[in-house]
Simulated scan of single mutants.
Amino acid sequence: MDVNHFLISSLLERWRLETHTFHFPHGETTVTLKDVAILLGLPIDGDVVTGPTTVQDIFSTFHEYLGVIPPPTVIRGNSIRVTWLNTTFQQLPPNANNDVIAQYARAYILTLIGSILMPNTSVARVHVMYLLKLADLNVVRNYSWGSAVLACLYHCLDHGIHLRQENICGCMILLQCWAWEMITSIVPQLQPLSDQEVVDGDGFPVCRRWTNVTHRINSASISVTEFQLRFDQIRTRQFLWRSYIQPEVSRLIVVDIPPVSIATVPIIASRQ
């Protein structure tokens, strides 16, 4: 999926560090754990993704978990080039045993983390600390990867606002699909997926419904100025406060969303 940088830039202008929300004329809103679970299909309830950020011997670490020793040219500090992972683990060899399959699975997940889910500003390298969490593939699903992705996105948006960076790190696909699902005035028109496509799994995670170009109609590019104007003129009915309840979207959601994504909190108001 191509990222619309005009859209991302226009959203970034409305991000506020103090509240971690986007400010629009009708109120504040933000990406939540529920959005991550539905749009990306990642677990949002589980063990925290945390641990050491350095290793004593990075080459031995890669040999242990990936079965190969990368050349020094693709290593910088505690990170490795994503392109090297793509090239080295592009095709699973025939008659691969369980150990080799696990090594390729780790490399694939590491590539997803470094290029899509939690990329840095260059989208060129991924940190070895994530490989350590993939040591035992049987417990990988027990981690709250969705929480890590959302925390990374918040951090990247904060960092981008503070330093006025040209490139923003974090999961831009999540942010873009969230905007398309929520703000009707900027959404590309889509033909609904057929019942068979839904059965085949083409609609979940819900981000997938935006990746099939055969379903796009009149998806012409909109300039930053046009996005800014549409955000300035947005009306209450053009923002879907109760998201994912539309029939064309709700029928795509095939998992139960953990209650951890919902909280009841008091409203605090102050007089100026």
Rank of each mutant, 00 (worst) to 15 (best):
L42H: 03
V49W: 03
H63N: 12
V100L: 15
V49G: 04
N95R: 14
D45F: 09
H63R: 13
Q90E: 13
I38V: 09
F62A: 00
L92Q: 12
Y65M: 13
G41H: 00
T87V: 08
G77W: 04
I44V: 14
I69G: 01
Q56P: 04
V31C: 03
L92H: 10
P70L: 03
G77Y: 06
G77F: 05
L40K: 07
P93N: 00
I58D: 05
L40I: 08
F59K: 01
N95Y: 13
G41M: 00
V48D: 08
T30K: 07
G51Y: 06
T73K: 10
F59C: 00
L33N: 00
F62S: 00
E28N: 15
I38C: 02
P93W: 01
N95S: 14
V55Y: 11
N95A: 15
R81G: 08
H26D: 14
D57T: 09
P43G: 09
P93H: 03
V68F: 07
P43L: 10
P43E: 11
G46L: 09
G46E: 03
Q90L: 12
I38E: 00
N97F: 10
W84I: 01
Q91L: 14
P93L: 01
S60Y: 07
P71G: 11
I101D: 09
A96F: 02
G27L: 12
D45M: 09
G67R: 04
L66Q: 00
N86L: 15
V68H: 06
R81F: 09
T54H: 08
N98W: 05
I80G: 03
I44T: 03
L40T: 06
L33R: 02
T73V: 10
L92F: 09
S79H: 03
V100K: 13
T88A: 00
I69V: 14
L66A: 02
W84F: 11
G51S: 10
F89E: 03
K34F: 01
F59S: 02
T54Q: 12
R81E: 14
I69E: 07
I38G: 01
R81Q: 11
V55T: 14
T53V: 13
L92A: 12
G51M: 05
E28L: 13
P70Q: 03
P70W: 01
G46K: 05
L39C: 05
A37Q: 04
Q91P: 05
Y65I: 06
I58G: 02
T50N: 11
L66Y: 00
